[in-house]
Amino acid sequence: MPLTKRIIPCLDVKDGKVVKGTAFVNLRDMGDPVALAARYAAQGADELLFLDITATIQERKIFLSLIKSVARQVNIPFTVGGGISSEADAYNLLSAGADKISVNSAAVKEPALVSKLAKRFGSQCVVLAADAGMQADGNWQVYVNGGRKNTGISVLCWIEQAVQMGAGEILLTSINNDGGRKGFALSLLQEVTARVQVPVIASGGAGSLQHFADVFEQTGADAALAAGIFHEESITIPQVKQYLYKQKIPVRL
């Protein structure tokens, strides 16, 4: 059997609680992060992603202690992102028990951050998160600051640059698809997975079991991430895995 495709629940954390919005706004409370993480691990999640979607210093401390509790209770890998802008930020999170760190806006502002982190901690624990927004001409550009600001930079160019600088994995979110539950951005994922030789996590748009099959059958994505559908239990991780297994897509059951 080959390497399996990963299903990754994403936990957006604000003020110590999991929240979920649509297209990065209208946040709703989804409960306790540690309890949710433990539930997902028990259900067969392959990995978890925690995003700190606030970044004041006070909230940062809460987030760090939360990450420690997660590491104590959950025995599957997890990535942490949100507001990481220095080696010290990354070090604190890795020391608290995170397995990988994900960088986004700060890396766009200072691309050398990616190489610094890769050199110090190894490429395998540096995830580049890119928020992609489709333009009127069909091209995808990189957005920063939680999807609010268009940088005008081409997504493909940025991802290629980040991989050259040592990013070991790409978390690619389509802002257009996020929260819409109409499927992943397949054409974007096809383009990106054809261009880079590191694993790519597809994010934004999962709404049905078939959407997960589509992203693995039609693109080179290595993992698929979802939030709202899992938090609400409109679709569960075991359902996704069983469905993919029946479609002969390699998954860990």
Binding site: L3, T4, G168, V198, D222, A223
Partner: peptide, 11 residues
Amino acid sequence: APKIPHIGWND
């Protein structure tokens, strides 16, 4: 391998 690093669950 086509993609490096090798990340994930393998048998």
